[in-house]
Simulated scan of single mutants.
Amino acid sequence: MSTPTGAETVVKQYVDDLTLALAQLETGAMTDVLETLVLALRAGDRVFVAGNGGSSTAAIHIASDLTAASDRLSSAPQAVALTENIARVTAIANDFSYDEIFSRQLVGWGRPRDVVLLLSVSGHSTNLVRAANTGRELGMTVLAALGNAGEIARLADRSVIFGQADYGLTEDLHVALGHMAVRVLRGGDACRYTDGRTR
């Protein structure tokens, strides 16, 4: 029975679109991005994650998961979302420019061999382009997970394009990328809820 709102039709279409996006995922490109993230964390290098809008919260989600999943590493991991400190972000935006909210943080913290992972649907966000350029200048490895190639893909050392430039699909897959990285860090093991665990 169809609903008056048309929600059932939308749900079915979204599931079909997401299924297609997953089927079209460039697994080789995704593997390159994931291996780079994991190798950096295992080597004790830092991983910075950045994005705008929904991708800003995906950045926090990914950084949090990478930190929590790396309890098997010999050294404490350093995965940081450049969006997690709203006071710092708004101070930079107010005192300088929104275009510099990520690049200025990288100038202060980034070092050679560190990694910056940029999340974008358009592939053209000016603040992410600047972050990519700054990362390259600092000798960092620049990774990108994008809905559309854009200028960011040209600047990245490794990139993966997914979601057909659809905001919902691309942002869903940003989070999926983070969860895949967690499995790689855990040696391929799934992280399932069991009694007694709060997460």
Rank of each mutant, 00 (worst) to 15 (best):
A156E: 07
I101Y: 00
E171R: 13
G123R: 05
T141W: 12
L41Y: 07
S97L: 07
T198Y: 13
A165E: 14
A79L: 06
A156V: 04
V89G: 00
G139F: 07
T9F: 04
V115T: 12
V89I: 09
V80A: 00
S55E: 10
R42W: 10
P112T: 11
W109H: 14
I101M: 04
V121Y: 05
A153L: 15
A93Y: 07
L138S: 03
V175E: 11
D195E: 14
A50Y: 02
S122F: 02
M1D: 10
P77W: 11
V47I: 10
K12A: 14
L118E: 05
H174Q: 07
D157L: 08
S122Q: 04
L169E: 04
C191E: 12
F162C: 11
T141N: 12
G196Y: 02
Y193I: 02
T134I: 07
G108A: 15
I60H: 12
V107D: 00
L143R: 11
I161D: 03
D114P: 02
R192Q: 05
Q105T: 02
A145Q: 08
H124M: 12
W109E: 12
N85R: 10
S74M: 14
T19E: 15
S120W: 04
A87K: 04
N85P: 01
L73E: 09
A87E: 05
L39F: 09
R154N: 14
A7W: 12
M140N: 10
I92S: 08
T31W: 05
V49Q: 09
P77N: 11
D16R: 15
L22R: 06
V15D: 03
A93H: 06
Q164V: 08
A21M: 07
A23G: 02
S70P: 09
R104V: 07
I60N: 15
V80C: 01
V129G: 00
G163V: 01
P4N: 03
